[in-house]
Design a binder for these strands. Structure first.
Lengths: 213, 213, 213, 213
DNA sequence: CATGAATGAGAGTTCATTCAT
DNA sequence: GATGAATGAACTCTCATTCAT
């Protein structure tokens, strides 16, 4: 799916411009989506934000949806290693939670354009497409949670629901953070962490017998 | 595009209570949106799922977005009284949290069509437009939280973030509930409640000095 | 296939304009096709030759091919009755042949616009699409030939090939007639008739055992 | 559109006799035209059926029309010598006619791919472009007919119309032959020959005073 | 000469919206 | 109000053609 051009084999100018065109389209798309919202954006809007000719778009993507997914993938590809690193470094559950929220909110704060359509004044529909890459990110989190449970570090709760809760809190709190001016990534991370650290101990025992055993 | 199931139309032409065209459109829209997703749906798709003529649509709504908002409003209008009732009845913070999640998950479970595009197999973008009515629902929750804080029932946390967290958890857990088959509204409510009851005690003191200081 | 609007039920202005728009498109198409040739003609060319808006085209036809076929059908529908009448009136084989060629060449001569792309100087590809209506015309001719054979009026030749030959001669001679200035419909008819009257007697016995018997 | 069978490419890239790119394109075009019909075929379809790059096409041909004409010419160039040989060998009018039809139908039968779009089940428009080479073939036939008239071997009929009739019969009967399974080249030739031998005697005296007076 | 990505005109088509009936 | 065909702006996308490599 994610066919980021392999930068290891830099051969001639042709390959270079090819890769850079693809990136130019993705970059333009990021800005335009953030500006108009996914629904209102047209392929034309995207290429117009580029130096390229209209036909060129179709050498790289089949549709607006495909660029959007490439964008999501790209983002997921950038966030996931950070989260993974944090969690690997964690020596206990607290560090696991802190690290996850921390690096996510930092990312959001410093890379806002990824966060589409968080415009203060115009009300723009928020669109969410969970690409395989994004879902893989969720999955990774879930697996880590399951491991924590197996290691006794976490009580045996429903890992899916716990993962979903973390995702839900992360997204909504991040949205607040971007909407308001007075919430730092640190505030957000401390808030979310406290909520989860306290809450997790009290969770009911696993609700489902085991994922697709 | 545009292959909406007929479903033998939503409502007969001028049979039925007269002023119900508006409702017929909303009902059709609910089904069509759930089927095609917001983005892919056209006004034509909606009227086609009706016995009405295309022009008639515009006697009631200006655009697809407007119907979608009417839909959201309608939903909010149906959920909010339940939530409010639960919270009024609550005699302590636990009952407040339980009641809120409980009635929300019950609603979702029993009125799934509102929940657009939770199709198991086709991947459909999720679109979220927070209409005034929906925002008012959030606001109501936030105010209740603020009151709880003032009454000392809750520690002085950031009410916005707490509200956002409840919303995020509610949405994501509901999504899991609809996607999986083995999570009841009760499971979901108990999970979310435990998470919040435990977590809330540990929340950091208010991060913001006051809304719109 | 051929859905010529029923002119018997003239109800209101709406139906009228609807029918007349359809006809306007067909008429424009006839001229444009004759002018540019089928291949070079675009849907836009056709609507441009009309007072109608571009979208209107698609209320009536799905594509250029569909109008072309409507055109062919319309033509076939106009020629066939004449040919049929001639052949019914015929009291012997000679009259049968004469009548057929005669009325065909007359039609061509007096309704040239039907005859696409017979431009003297630009060389324009000739396109031929045999629509069901046109094929039905061929069929009709073939059946008449078969009957003639059964009645002993014609020797037992291969009716398909005989029909094909008449068609081939008719088309090519008509084309000559339109290309040159000095061949009248009468000349053409006398030529073709003589050829067939003389030739038919000598035809080999039926080559095929019977159509899909 | 554009789903041309690969057919494992027509020819290897620079293997094979070098100057054969032109031929590779023509060969690919022959197949693709036969498959999609002239109108539906694009230059891209043709080069895709080749191992060549798109730009290379333009080193050899200016457009799809030009390849098509090259194809027609190639065909004409292959048929004409056969027809000429037959006619030169002919010692009387009968042999002239027999030879002409015979070798034409043989050619068609054994080289069907030239005969575009004689697909049994999909209905594909037949396109005919009379290239100079093809017209020269017609011309040659006409001249032979005129000579026959001058030599008294044929009665003084209109040579144009006679030529046109032969062409029309040849094309239509060939089409039947390809469409049906039970007509051999021999059947076709005997049929056409009989028709003409018988008919020609009765033809009316020359209708036109002379070509391009 | 071959290559194949870039180009951009323009074809086909959709669809929100209007408006005469 | 209800109707549904007409409208035409605007979009998606294709494809012949060019041109740097």
């Amino acid at each position: 799916m994610s066919n980021v051009p392999d930068l290891t084999k830099i051969r001639g100018k042709r390959e270079e411009t090819k890769a850079s065109n693809r990136q130019a389209i993705i970059d333009a798309a990021r800005i335009v989506f953030a500006d108009l919202g996914y629904g209102a954006t047209t392929v034309r809007d995207i290429i117009r934000a580029t130096n390229l000719a209209s036909g060129t778009f179709y050498n790289y993507f089949k549709s607006k949806e495909e660029v959007f997914q490439a964008l999501q993938d790209e983002t997921a590809l950038r966030v996931r290693p950070r989260l993974r690193a944090e969690r690997i470094r964690a020596r206990n559950f607290e560090e696991f939670i802190v690290g996850t929220f921390r690096s996510y909110f930092d990312f959001v704060k410093n890379d806002q354009t990824t966060f589409i359509a968080v415009r203060r004044h115009r009300e723009i529909p928020r669109v969410r497409i969970d690409t395989p890459e994004v879902i893989a990110g969720f999955e990774e989190l879930r697996v880590d949670i399951e491991n924590a449970i197996e290691n006794g570090v976490l009580p045996p709760a429903d890992a899916d629901l716990l993962m979903a809760s973390m995702v839900g809190v992360a997204f909504e709190v991040a949205h607040q953070m971007l909407t308001r001016d007075d919430v730092t990534a640190d505030d957000a991370a401390r808030f979310a962490t406290a909520l989860f650290l306290g809450g997790v101990q009290a969770l009911p025992r696993k609700a489902k017998p085991g994922k697709k055993k």
